[in-house]
Design a protein around this nucleic acid. Structure first.
Lengths: 219, 219
DNA sequence: AAAAATATTTAAGCTTACTTAAATTTATTT
DNA sequence: AAATAAATTTAAGTAAGCTTAAATATTTTT
C-alpha cells in the first residue's frame, strides 16, 4: 500500500476521533492538502480495497481492515517520536515532521524493535497512546481538554494534540509539556479565554489552545 | 527530488565505483530492477535537472550536483545502518533493507543528529566509509579484496560489500565480520578458491565471496 | 568485414495521484 | 418552501515512473 493510501486512512482516523467528527471528503482533503476531487477519487479506490465504506455524500467510514492500517501507521509514527525524543535533542515539532515521513518506511519488525528498545512505552512524547503490535490501544484516556476544565483546580498535562510549530514553540517557552502541573486560575466564559498558572507564571490561553491541551485532574 | 531519482543517481555512483565501471542504462536498470527503456527515459530527465551528463549510447556520468546527491543519500543510508546496528539486535541484511527505505525520508538535520549521537563515525557496520555532511569521504581505503590476498598472510576484515541475505547469513555463521582476523591459508589459482582460517575454523570461499570481502594486511 | 548477438533508444500505453472546471447534490439562509 | 451557499461528484487532463514492442545502434563473433 502506498504512502498516499496510508496517509488517507490515517486522516480519516484522526478526523473521526476529533470532536467535529467530520470524515467527509472535503475535511480529509483539507487535512491532507489535496483537492476535494482527489479525496473523492481516493475514497472510491479505498472502498474497492475494502479499507473504507463509501456511500456518495456520506461520511467516509473505515472498515476493520482500514482501521487496522491506520493504527499500524500511527503506532509507527508514535514509536519514532518516542525514539527520536529519547535519543536526540530536537524540538517536538521537528520530531513530528521526521516521524511523519519515517512512519511509512518502517517494517513491522523494526517497529517492534523500537518498541522493545524503549521498554514498550504506552505513550509518545505528546502523551498520545501508542497502539500495540495488534493495532490496539489498551490504555483508557480519561483526560479532558483545558476548555472543559474547572476554575481553581490543579491538573496534569497529559496530551498536546497538535502538529503545529507555533503551538509547540509556545508550549516549550512556557513549560507546557507532558507531565507538568497547571492550575486553572480563571475561566472567562464570555470570550472563552482561560487563565492558568504554570511554573509560577500566569498565562492566558484562547480556545484554539485550550481545546488541544488535554489534562487529568490532580488527586 | 523523488525516491526514484535518488535511487537512480545512487545506482550510477555505485556501479561507477565497481571494477566493471559500467554505468550504461542497461546496467543501472539491472541494479534497480527496472526496464532498460525506463532507465534511458530517466537518464534524459536527470540530464535536464543537471544531475547527469547524458549522451546517446554512452556511459551515464554524474555531474558535481548529481555526485553530491548520491553521496548525501549514501551518507544517510550508512548512518541509519550504524544506528540500527548499535541499538537493535538485527541481522546486517535486515538492517540494510530498513536503511534502503529510511535513507530517502531523512532530513539533513536528522542525519546530523544521528551522526553526532554515534560520535561521527567514519565507517558503517559493513566497513563502508560514511560521507561527511558536505558529501565528502575523507578516509582513504587501502583495503584489497580477498581474491587479491596472499597465501600465508594475516588480514583484518574491513568491508563486506554486499546486500545479499545469503551472503550475510554465511558471514554471521562463520564469524566473518568487520574487524575480525583471517589467515589466508591457501589460494587455489586454478578454480579461484581461497582457503581461510577464521575463529579456528578452516573454510573455503569461491570467487563470488572473495571478491566482495575486503581486508587490510595485519602489521 | 560481414553476420549475429546484444544493448540502447523510441514509441505507445498504463497506473497512481493528483489538478481544474463544470455539474450535481446537500445544507443553510431568508 | 424557495433561494442561495457550500460541498461533493463527475469529467477531462497532467506528470511521474514505469511497461512492452519495435526500431536503431553498437559490440562481439566468426
Amino acid at each position: 500500500m502506498s504512502i498516499a493510501i496510508e496517509n488517507f486512512v490515517k486522516a480519516i482516523y484522526k478526523n473521526g476521533k476529533r470532536d467535529n467528527n467530520d470524515t467527509k471528503p472535503g475535511n480529509i482533503a483539507k487535512e491532507l492538502g489535496i483537492s476535494n476531487a482527489a479525496a473523492t477519487d481516493m475514497a472510491k479506490k479505498l472502498a474497492i480495497k475494502d479499507l473504507i465504506n463509501y456511500e456518495k455524500y456520506q461520511e467516509l467510514k473505515l472498515t476493520v481492515k482500514g482501521n487496522k492500517m491506520a493504527l499500524n501507521v500511527i503506532r509507527k509514527h508514535r514509536l519514532w517520536e518516542a525514539l527520536l525524543f529519547k535519543l536526540f535533542d530536537m524540538s517536538l515539532h521537528d520530531i513530528h515532521r521526521e516521524a511523519e515521513l519515517l512512519e511509512h518506511q518502517t517494517s513491522d519488525l523494526l517497529a517492534n524493535k523500537i518498541s522493545e528498545y524503549l521498554g514498550n512505552p504506552k505513550f509518545d512524547p505528546h502523551g498520545d497512546p501508542i497502539p500495540n503490535a495488534d493495532g490496539e490501544i489498551t490504555t483508557t484516556d480519561t483526560s479532558i481538554s483545558l476548555s472543559n476544565s474547572e476554575e481553581g483546580k490543579n491538573y496534569i498535562i497529559s496530551r498536546l494534540m497538535s502538529d503545529d510549530k507555533e503551538f509547540f514553540d509556545f508550549c516549550a517557552q512556557h513549560g507546557l509539556k507532558y507531565g507538568n502541573t497547571v492550575l486553572v486560575s480563571k475561566q472567562f466564559s464570555k470570550n472563552k479565554m482561560t487563565q492558568i498558572l504554570i511554573n509560577n507564571n500566569t498565562i492566558l490561553l484562547n480556545e484554539d489552545f485550550t481545546s488541544i491541551i488535554y489534562v487529568n485532574e490532580q488527586d
